Simulated scan of single mutants.
Amino acid sequence: MNGLILLVQGICLLHTVSAVTHSMQYIVTAVSGLDEIPEHTEVGMVDGQQFVYYDSVLKKIIPKTDWIEKNVDASYWKRETDRNIATEQTFKSNVAIAMTRFNQTRGVHIYQYMYGCMWDDDSGVTEGHRQYGYDGEDFLVYNMKTFTWIAPKQQSEITQRKWNNEPAQMEYLKSYITQECIEWLKKYVDYGKSTLMRTVPPSVSLFQKTPSSPVTCHATGFYPSDVMVSWQKDGQDHHEDVEYGETLPNNDGTFQKSIHLTVTPDDRKNNKYQCVVQVKGIMEDFIKVLTDPDAANIVPIIGGVVALLLVVVAVVVGVVIWRKRSKKGFVPTSTSDTDSENSGKAAPQI
Rank of each mutant, 00 (worst) to 15 (best):
K187P: 15
Y188Q: 10
V189E: 12
V189P: 08
D190K: 08
G192A: 01
G192F: 15
K193D: 15
S194Q: 09
S194T: 15
S194L: 15
T195C: 15
L196N: 07
L196C: 11
M197G: 11
M197W: 10
R198E: 15
T199A: 15
T199D: 14
P201H: 02
P201R: 00
P201K: 00
P202I: 00
P202C: 03
S203N: 03
S203L: 14
F207A: 04
F207M: 15
F207V: 00
K209P: 06
K209M: 07
T210I: 05
P211T: 02
P211E: 08
S212A: 01
S213M: 02
S213I: 02
P214A: 05
V215D: 13
T216P: 11
T216K: 04
C217D: 09
H218E: 04
A219G: 15
G221M: 13
F222C: 02
F222E: 08
Y223H: 08
P224N: 04
P224R: 10
P224T: 03
S225I: 04
S225E: 09
S225Y: 06
D226Q: 10
D226R: 04
D226N: 01
V227P: 07
M228Y: 13
M228E: 06
M228H: 09
V229T: 13
S230L: 13
W231S: 01
Q232W: 10
Q232S: 04
Q232H: 13
K233P: 14
K233F: 12
Q236A: 01
Q236M: 13
Q236P: 03
D237W: 07
H238Q: 07
H239T: 08
E240H: 11
E243R: 09
Y244D: 14
Y244H: 11
Y244S: 06
Y244L: 09
E246P: 00
E246N: 08
T247N: 04
T247H: 12
L248V: 06
L248A: 01
L248W: 05
L248H: 04
L248F: 06
N251F: 14
N251Q: 12
D252Y: 13
G253F: 07
G253M: 02
G253C: 12
T254Q: 06
T254H: 02
T254F: 04
F255R: 07
F255A: 11
Q256V: 03
K257Y: 00
K257Q: 05
S258D: 10
I259C: 00
I259Q: 03
H260S: 07
H260G: 10
L261G: 11
L261D: 01
L261P: 08
T262Q: 14
T264W: 14
T264V: 10
T264Y: 14
T264E: 14
D266A: 03
D267M: 11
D267E: 11
D267R: 05
R268I: 01
R268H: 00
K269V: 01
K269P: 11
K269D: 10
N270P: 09
N270Q: 12
N270C: 08
N270E: 14
N271I: 12
K272P: 15
Y273V: 00
C275M: 01
C275F: 08
V276M: 07
Q278F: 13
Q278S: 08
V279N: 03
V279R: 02
K280I: 04
G281W: 02
I282D: 13
